[in-house]
Simulated assay, not measured.
Amino acid sequence: MDWLRVGAFALLILYHVGMYFVPWDWHVKAANPDPHAAILMLATNSWRLALLFVVSGYASAAVFAHQPSPAGFARSRSARLLIPLVFAVIVVIPPQPWIELMFKHGYTESFSHFWLHDYFRFGALDGIILPTWQHLWFVVYLWVYSIVLALLMLLPAGVRARAARFCEAALTGPAILAVPIALMALRTIVLFPGVGETHALVDDGATHALYFPCFLFGVLLRGSSPLWTAIRRWWRVAAVLAVAAYAVVAVIEYRYPGETPLDDTLTALFRAARAVQGWATIVALIGIADRWLNRDAPIRTTLTEAVFPLYIAHQTIIVAVGWWLLPLTLPNLAAFAILVAATAAGSWTFYIVGRSVPWLRPLIGLARKEKGRPEGRPFPTAQ
């Protein structure tokens, strides 16, 4: 699961680089966005964040095993998630809305003026709410889900055991695919048709209806032999379903790119295919990781530790470098290569510098060093 988490965050970084080139709304865009790039983006769009919440739920269960007190678990998660969140909102994220305001709204003030006079207004500036947590909405949601998990752990052990057995019974055999796909389709076609993600926490019911169950599935998965048995039995079928469903999504996107309207039948087909692709891909990837990545390597501890700092830094680097690239009018492929290289180098530097300075470690999501603890050996995390 560590390898899966590292891979999922690597894909997330590439996805955010891709946001610079597709016609979809984002903080800053390439001079000539490519409509067909959306087809590649849709290869991961329906499952990348859901997978991260599954893996985070799994890791949260591991953390709880080391900190079995619900109150202790809540304190641990709060310190590990909220401290870097606040630091990032104050220090790391501000260049993103500043550049977005210049790009979209003609804002002309310097960054220092923006940070000192406009960023901490606790209100809107040209429709952008400031200050903002931007891509760190994931951390906010993960913290909230962790607190809810801590509250659930206050329930009597018998109640929790019965609930776990019920969920396991509902997801054994082919139901490991059928039940979640049906629920995802119900969410996107019936309950929240056409409702997008706001990432504002309190008005984001459609998002919570997807990611919180994924988080709970990850929690349940860690100690569930029936679920692992079902995944090992059905992941190959899941892989076939995922590829077939993505083919449907890709063909529809190719035939009707961007904001081209779809009739009701195609809209339902598109949403249903995304539901199939989303969950089937998650099951397939867990099965693949269990089959071929269930082994250790020296680099794993470093990569696992680096994930959270890299996540904190990467989007600000993408937005800043993307803004710098605009006047150069480079071909999209060249700009993509520069963005990937700059983001990788900048994010890794952020991690290396931060981990070497003791007082910076908790600010970038790393545990404080303990005497006698080997360098590079991470604490259990759930970011």
Rank of each mutant, 00 (worst) to 15 (best):
G7S: 04
F9N: 14
A10I: 15
L14Y: 05
H16Y: 02
F21S: 00
V22Y: 04
V28M: 02
V28R: 10
A30N: 10
A31R: 12
P33V: 05
H36Y: 14
H36R: 12
H36M: 15
A37D: 11
I39K: 04
L40M: 08
N45M: 13
W47P: 03
W47L: 03
L49P: 03
F53A: 04
V54D: 02
Q67S: 15
P70V: 11
A71T: 09
A71F: 04
F73P: 13
R80I: 11
I83M: 14
F87W: 05
V89D: 04
V89Q: 01
V92G: 08
Q96C: 08
W98R: 03
F103I: 03
G106R: 00
T108N: 12
S110A: 09
H113C: 08
F114Y: 07
W115Q: 02
Y119M: 04
D126C: 09
G127Q: 00
L136Q: 07
L142P: 00
W143M: 01
S146W: 02
E168W: 06
L171W: 03
I176V: 11
I176P: 06
L177N: 00
A178I: 12
A182V: 14
L183P: 06
L183F: 13
A185D: 05
L186V: 08
R187H: 02
T188Y: 07
T188D: 14
T188K: 13
F192P: 08
D204R: 00
D204M: 00
G205F: 08
A206Q: 12
A206D: 15
H208F: 01
H208Y: 01
Y211P: 01
G223P: 12
S224G: 04
A230E: 14
A238V: 07
L241N: 10
A242C: 10
A250H: 07
V251H: 14
I252P: 13
D263E: 01
D263S: 05
R274M: 14
A275Q: 03
A275R: 07
V276G: 05
W279H: 14
L285Y: 08
I286H: 03
I286E: 06
I288P: 04
A289P: 11
A289Q: 13
N294M: 13
A297C: 11
P298N: 09
P298R: 09
T301P: 10
T302I: 10
E305K: 06
P309E: 11
P309I: 05
Y311G: 06
Y311F: 12
A313K: 05
Q315D: 12
V319C: 07
V321F: 03
V321Y: 10
T329K: 15
I338P: 01
V340Q: 03
A342M: 03
A345C: 04
F350T: 08
F350K: 08
I352L: 12
R355G: 10
S356L: 08
V357I: 15
V357G: 09
W359D: 09
L360F: 02
I364M: 02
G365K: 03
K369W: 15
E375P: 10
R377H: 13
P380C: 06
Q383T: 11
Q383H: 14
